[in-house]
Design a binder for these strands. Structure first.
Lengths: 277, 277
DNA sequence: GCTCGCGTACGGTCCTGCCGAACGCCGAAG
DNA sequence: CTTCGGCGTTCGGCAGGACCGTACGCGAGC
């Protein structure tokens, strides 16, 4: 956006990638995606498409910085504690991390559900903080991962703040994959649903992302009036009588408004739609 | 360790480091340690000791993998969401991470304090998981960082499982720095304290690491009978009447025993001390 | 005891990472 | 409005170093 006149390079940043660094980071991804506990050196080399020597040099460098560690029986590599530390610090450097933690705890306690907050990363929700409710079942709710926008409460809450063209672009790019029998997979139905989200002030994911799981989300607004992300609560649908939905939605909306206030959003403007901020 | 006959290289692994990867990882550390929100490109180059071109190439590569992100006003770099995701996954790949989560929640709820679990990394405690209590004040309790062994409850719980020579070696290396007026800074006093820890089955950090903060920790044992880490609870000392210390210690000890059971430690051996095995 | 596979160590060759210098843009100063 | 300085970005060239192939020691399996 800043360099409007891109002279010749259409590929963009790919020309200035550092090969060995890219390989090292791909090695980390490889180990992160490893199913169980660890990969052996040969598997790393094969996965990277390099020789064992190269894989070892990269792995040694990563290990020295604590990104990797080797578990001793038949040396295998797993992710190390440095990533834990960096992930913790990343959560604090991201705009929403520590700011909304107390409010998430409150929300999780009040609803008994797992409360999370996501930043809007090009329309996609990326969850950056998670607080489990007191009796909440452990969901697999990874942090830092891009979730689908059309089938999650946080995603729909974010989409509802955008205009139709932007929604169309994002959904075209993401593909609107079917995740359950309730997933909205066509644009007109989604646009109708987003209009409902705007009216109510919160979004509902009713088994649209996973069977038996219900989420309620509400959008956050930053100091510039733009959408900064969303909060959402997640629970087992069977545990929640339908008549509580409005109550949960109100709580989520209220928490979102308070977080928006912390972000510097003027609370006097109630309508997220209307004119362009 | 494995290569007993090291022919010439005394430095060890330093010869096989990949320079550009090491620089990239140092760049990440640099940004992680940045006080506020982000560093500019010039600051990165200065901090790395390289030219701006090199710093930019490294930063671009890191950005493409999501390790860094740039915040828009006057482009500055902060840690990205990929580190969040990797940190989350690292917690699951580490031996203790997901295993003890429910028990930590239980412990935090029962005591009202912040419950944490640490792995033993060469005698040092490295906290890998944290669950805040319901009304607990927010401490600055970073994950993944090596804590001091002699002034923390988790550290002393781990040290209490080692023999005197190992304790002496670790404390010589770490230096036993004074952190508060209550810190134990000489070896004989520490050894006495560790004997008490062994008798009681839990360790107490009574304002030894930070003024006004009290921690209680208990060691974990793995399937091989060795110490795998420790659990600890942290709270404001003023909130805890002295007569509750034994009760909290009992809960911590109980939680540690149950986690040890999950790790495959034979629970028929009640005494953590006794023989060496 | 033998073989096999793995992780490790080293030398050579070419790649590529690194730097210095030049360009365009933005904001500040006058 | 004009001028100036700083910053991020881009490009060319050199040589440092990243990569590979090969050889070694060790432990496991039969």
């Amino acid at each position: 956006m800043r360099t409007a006149a891109r002279p010749a390079t259409a590929a963009g940043g790919d020309r200035y990638l550092v090969q060995s660094v890219a390989r090292a980071l791909r090695l980390v991804e490889l180990i992160a995606d490893a199913p169980a506990a660890g990969l052996a050196l040969g598997e790393l080399a094969e996965g990277l498409g390099t020789s064992k020597s190269t894989a070892m040099a990269l792995a040694r460098t990563l290990m020295r910085f604590g990104y990797l560690r080797d578990v001793h029986p038949g040396p295998r590599y797993t992710l190390g504690t440095a990533l834990l530390r960096l992930g913790d610090q990343a959560g604090q450097q991201l705009p929403l991390g520590p700011l909304c933690r107390p409010l998430l705890v409150e929300l999780a306690t009040a609803t008994g559900m797992t409360a999370r907050v996501a930043v809007a990363d090009g329309g996609y929700p990326v969850f950056v903080e998670r607080v489990d409710g007191p009796g909440s079942v452990r969901f697999h709710t990874p942090l830092g991962q891009r979730e689908v926008p059309h089938a999650t409460a946080a995603g729909k809450a974010i989409l509802a703040t955008l205009d139709e063209a932007a929604v169309r672009r994002i959904c075209d790019a993401s593909g609107m994959a079917r995740r359950t029998g309730h997933t909205i997979t066509d644009l007109p139905t989604l646009l109708d649903n987003l209009a409902l989200v705007r009216r109510r002030g919160f979004a509902v994911d009713d088994e649209e992302d996973a069977v038996g799981v219900l989420c309620v989300g509400a959008a956050l607004f930053g100091h510039d009036g733009g959408c900064a992300g969303a909060v959402s609560v997640t629970g087992i649908k069977g545990d929640l009588p339908a008549w509580r939905l409005d109550q949960i939605g109100r709580r989520a909306r209220d928490a979102a408004a308070r977080i928006s206030g912390l972000l510097g959003h003027a609370p006097s403007r109630p309508g997220p739609a209307g004119g362009g901020g």
